[in-house]
Amino acid sequence: MSGSPPRRGSALAADRAEPRAVRTRERVVRALFDALAAAPLEELTVARLCRDAGVHRVTFYGHWPDIRTLAADVFAEEVDRLARVPEDVISEAAGPAELAAAYERALRDQLREILERRDVYRTLFASGSDAGFRRRLLAAQQERAEAAVTQLARAGAEVPGRASAYPAAFIAGGVVAAFEAWAVGGATGVEAAARAITAQLPGWWPR
């Protein structure tokens, strides 16, 4: 027998690139979305989710320690997915302002997603560090911001301190804070929110 401690939590899960692990995750994620259509996140249980997904509880706990960590994982990825600007859009942009507009369209898509599932995002932001949602979201947004800074600079934008991590960190931190304010608030105007958030971007951001 191995003397190693049992693997637990998403960071110690079965390798997610393995086909069996991928299939398991897809089934659990589908069950999560289906369950959230009928009940709030706070009411979901591992037993119910495993039953709906057709997986054993031991399998679930091999991937996530609890429901909120699963949701934090899934919804941080969903917001990150919507932040992606296609490569052809980047390559075909006529200049930094046109490229910045593409990133702003992605921002509106993210805001729509948060609005559509606002109750879930409110719960995840309120979970603090337990589920790691904010940490996951910030890490993903910083990676996206780093890519945006690089592409905007290549398109001709002058980015002060581009060689440092500060421009991307500043954008990512501000955007995540804005997402939280949007999630916990009561406003529903996506266009108005997008304009207000964009107005807070650094002075070098192309407009």
Rank of each mutant, 00 (worst) to 15 (best):
E42G: 07
I67K: 02
E87M: 04
G95S: 12
C50W: 09
A147Y: 02
E146Q: 08
E92Y: 08
Q110M: 11
R162K: 15
R118A: 03
D52C: 02
Q141K: 09
L82F: 14
A177L: 11
I90A: 03
A139S: 13
V74E: 09
T69F: 02
D73F: 12
R135Y: 06
P96S: 12
A47V: 13
C50Q: 07
I90S: 00
E87H: 04
A172R: 11
A97F: 10
W64F: 15
L111Y: 07
A139H: 09
R68G: 07
A168W: 06
A155Q: 09
G156R: 13
E113M: 12
A177E: 15
P86E: 11
S127Q: 11
Q141V: 01
L152F: 13
F125L: 07
I114M: 04
T59V: 13
P40K: 10
A148W: 03
T69K: 00
F125G: 00
A76Q: 07
L99G: 01
V58W: 09
G54Y: 09
A168V: 03
Y166V: 12
A147F: 03
R84M: 09
E77H: 11
A145W: 13
G132L: 02
R154H: 10
L70D: 00
R81E: 14
S164G: 15
V85E: 07
E104M: 07
E113S: 12
L107T: 02
L115M: 11
R105H: 10
V79D: 01
P40C: 12
G161N: 13
I171R: 04
F60G: 01
A169Q: 12
R84D: 14
A100P: 01
E104N: 06
A168P: 04
G173F: 10
A181Y: 05
V176M: 06
R112E: 15
Y166I: 08
E180T: 02
E116G: 03
G132E: 00
